[in-house]
């Protein structure tokens, strides 16, 4: 009996953890920064793309499917590739001496999550540092640079 109660309690706790209020991810920064603003679903996090690096700072290219376009010339449903700076850090802690003006509410990158992002393109014009691109040679077109990345659902 006690086991059953504990199991129900644990299930309720986990359900509560998983439950989230409706959130379109909009805030002043995501609405104003960059030249493109989309809500997009993170398709996958490739193996070895996001991990805590000891010393060096990289941007990592992640693949998204655009769900809604709020600003800029991107087609809904399009696949886009977005560079996130030091993606192993919560977005609110990602800016540093080298890369400033980035941020957001996303704490970590999970496949399937929905992000509302303010983007800049082409990324190479904005970011001159190292890029980890698991899609190198397999994708076409310029990558986008994530200026602001908020959680949405």
């Amino acid at each position: 009996m006690n086991d059953r109660i504990a199991l129900i309690g644990l299930s309720l706790l986990l359900a509560a953890c998983g439950a989230r209020d409706r959130n379109d991810g909009a805030d002043a920064q995501v609405r104003s920064l960059g030249t493109v603003e989309v809500t997009a679903r993170l398709v996958e996090v490739p193996e070895g793309a996001v991990f805590h690096r000891d010393l060096y700072d990289y941007a990592t290219i992640l693949k998204y499917e655009v769900v809604a376009v709020h600003r800029g010339a991107v087609a809904a449903g399009a696949t886009i590739f977005v560079g996130h700076y030091d993606p192993w850090k919560p977005r609110a802690e990602a800016a540093d001496k080298r890369v400033q003006g980035i941020g957001g509410t996303v704490r970590r990158f999970r496949a399937g999550d929905l992000h509302r992002m303010a983007l800049e393109t082409p990324m190479d014009d904005v970011f001159m540092g190292g890029i980890v691109d698991k899609y190198f040679g397999k994708r076409e077109g310029p990558a986008y640079w994530a200026v602001w990345t908020n959680e949405a659902n």
């Binding site: 690096r53 010393l55 060096y56 700072d57 990289y58 540092g129 190292g130 890029i131 980890v132 691109d133 190198f136």
Partner: peptide, 11 residues
């Protein structure tokens, strides 16, 4: 490219 002398810098 820090830590990427082999390949990342060529990319």
């Amino acid at each position: 490219n820090d830590g990427g002398g082999a390949t990342l810098v060529r990319q």
